[in-house]
Design a protein around this nucleic acid. Sequence first.
RNA 1: GGACACAUAGCUCAGCUGGUUAGAGCGCUGCCCUCACAUGGCAGAGGUCGAAGGUUCAAGUCCUUCUGUGUCCACCA
Length: 881
Amino acid sequence: MSELSARYNPREVEEKRLQLWDQKKPFHAEAGRAAKSKGPFTIVIPPPNVTGVLHMGHALNNTLQDILTRYKRMQGFDALWMPGTDHAGIATQNVVEKQLAKEGLTREQLGREKFMERLWEWKQRHGDTIILQLRRLGSSCDWDRTRFTMDEGYSGSVREVFIRLYERGLIYQGQYIINWCPRCQTALSDEEAEHRDSAGHLWHIKYPFKDDPAQFVTVATTRPETMLGDTAVAVNPKDERYRDLVGKVLVLPLTGREIRIIADDFVDREFGSGAVKVTPAHDPNDFAMGRRHNLEFVNILKPDGVLNENAGRFCGMDRFEGRKAVVKALEAEGFLAKIEPHANAVRRCYRCDTVVEPYLSRQWFVKMKPMADKALEAFRQGKPRLQPKRWEKVYENWLTDIRDWCISRQIWWGHRIPVWYDEKGNHFVARNEADARVQARAKLGKDVPLVQDPDVLDTWFSSWLWPFATLGWPADNRDLKYFYPTTALFTAPEIIFFWVARMVMAGIEFMGEVPFDDVILHGTVRDAKGRKMSKSLGNALDPLEIIEEYGADALRFSMILNSGQDIYISKEKFEIGRNFANKLWNASRFLSMNIKPEAKVDDFAAIDVTSLDLASRWIISRYQTALKEVTVAIDEYRYSEGENVLYEFFWATYCDWYLEIIKGKLDDVEVQKTAYCVLVNTLKMLHPFIPFVTEELYSQFKSKETILTLEAWPVPVESLADARAEAEMAVLIELVTKVRNVRAQWGIKQNDKIPCVLVCKNEAIIKLLKANIQVLQKLASIENVVFGSESDKIKNAVAGLAGDVKFLIPLSDLVDVDKEKDRIGKELAEAVKAATGLSGRLSSENFVSKAPAEVIAKERQRLAELEARIAELNRAVDSLV
RNA sequence: GGACACAUAGCUCAGCUGGUUAGAGCGCUGCCCUCACAUGGCAGAGGUCGAAGGUUCAAGUCCUUCUGUGUCCACCA
């Protein structure tokens, strides 16, 4: 291992490791493959969209998954991490359409077939890129299983689900108000239409009565152009002001259409004038009212957001242009009562940010309530758990107030809806056209021409099947049985509704089981100023650039160390990870230069602990603690904490103290063994976090082709915890620090060995210091140490050393009064608890009143005595100072 | 309009069920290129734990109110 250079070169090492992993496929999972299999462990990747390249969010998300997967694999689970990508319907289609636009083409001009070819080309090129990038990050996915939501097999699962849901009465087609994006020209689900606050206006318009044009009713609206589609005015039936007017006829300005005043409970008497214009074809509430009152539905918009012939003289105008024109006309003709500023939330397309129109159209829907109820039932039994817990309420609320899911999209990139129509509009839900024909023949008694529904399914209608469709469902196979349900899902809170909740529903519906035990919702990656990283803001850090410059380990390490709620990251942060990897490299290099082959043991059982020096017993004990803490932290998904423990242990404890101490003791083979054993096991613990450098170093010590993720995770050994060694080392460390401090203050150079008198009244401590005098001398750079416990002895000692003595160091071993007080208080609480069985705060309500008075009195008496003793100690301390 | 989260050193954050002297990294100051590492070592300065009350022997930690910041949800025109 002598070829190790003084500086760690991540690029070289990572390339080498990636090649090895590619060859040996150590991440392949199958039932019972692990040496001593502990059973299945499964994660499915949140499939990245094929639209883009790896961003920091992916880097975080996949690092988290990789940490757990590598850890579980080391623990002996058959660890499967299922990779794949998502076709991302609208998003991908938009990107390719933009590309076309540059060539001056539209998708209609190109035609469906040619356009789809372009999309598949895009997918071929970009789908593989992101997978490659995930590999460079170190992700230990079972790459041979990589799935794509539009793969043939996967598409079959999607069709199957549609058909089964239809057969179960959970899918229906209907004419409803949906969210329509005039730019994408497709329907959107409620989740895809995001509310965004905007400063708008409230226009008050006068609607005159037919039989008395001088009188009018005033209505208010934020979208004045929709008045062209009004077919009623509604008031609250309990509203005194309008009671007598219900049923009267008004004349709709600008159109001359006669509309009636209706009464409906929906209307809020307090808002505006208390009268509402009703536009059943362009507002979801009005739509409902329209149904209740049998109103006419007047659609005034074309799919592209341009006013149609129903808009009369405004026909041909864009909706926003039309808005201005309508207002102008109303004003000119005296119908505009007033305009006031009004803040309201406008829905926008989550893919292109265009203002969405509530639009009347025929779409396919999934009836959600029955599935949501089952999901709620499971949730109440604790499945899945969400972390952090606060998201559970959000999740529960959404399921409770669920609305039906509009799943048809008027785009081309996606799964074609498996429905065929005949000329009369009968529909046949079928696995393929041949089946549809069979159905049609059975129903109609003859062959008729059939046309498939031109629409495709919402992209999430395929994503929600991800945990089982990737395993081959509906085919009943061994993998599906073994690896489903999965263990944990790592994702961002933004997609709890889009994805997480729906996966739960699909999992229960088709597999009879919630698809994961734990859902870990991690934060968003932001820049140093707290802004979301995005291409348009220009503040996005490119993970690949970071990998090039600092290494994938550095990227992973720094990111995890910084992960709190949200992650604020800037380029300099990656130095921490880079430096840590370098430190690890150099410590290993140090050992490789100083250790005999026979000292290379990786089991503590091979070390004769009884013969070990204090520092070695101490580092073994500290290692045990670190191991336990890291294991618990990973089990509880607190990775940054686990990483922090390792960082502290390895750098501050192992390198800064232990390695420095043993530099004078390296001729002792047992010490060599200890140093090596702790290092090698620390490499194992670090491996899930920084897989490249740890495996490289590990294999340098072992054989070149060792795969560290297949080695066993270390197991703590209780008997190696050594409280005495820890206490003794704490004293040594404190003393050394103190001496160094004094030296620095007195301006003594670090290499200058100086004589020294240590003053201490505690015989046990003096004994300890004498036993470890070499360590003391080395680390504190002192010599001719004299211990003094009484003033005359000190005087003699100083006299003996004559002019050489630079300073005296008194070691305080006085009682810490505050600490004593705390101890007494705790004792009191515990004593009362022991006597009464009650625990809690010693407050009047919840503790004292429940505990028998005499117990409290007795304990309080004791407390008083103890406090008196403290007062005494206080005086003693004061007199010493 | 509803729900939630956060506020700790100049900056980014730890601090889990209340209990030693509130920690780390970066930055800053001073001294060191000491034979693993200057992507390093040693030492140091810097905090009324957002504000005000309260509970407790004990509060950064629990309760109430306020202020500030952020996130999610929402069919009041």
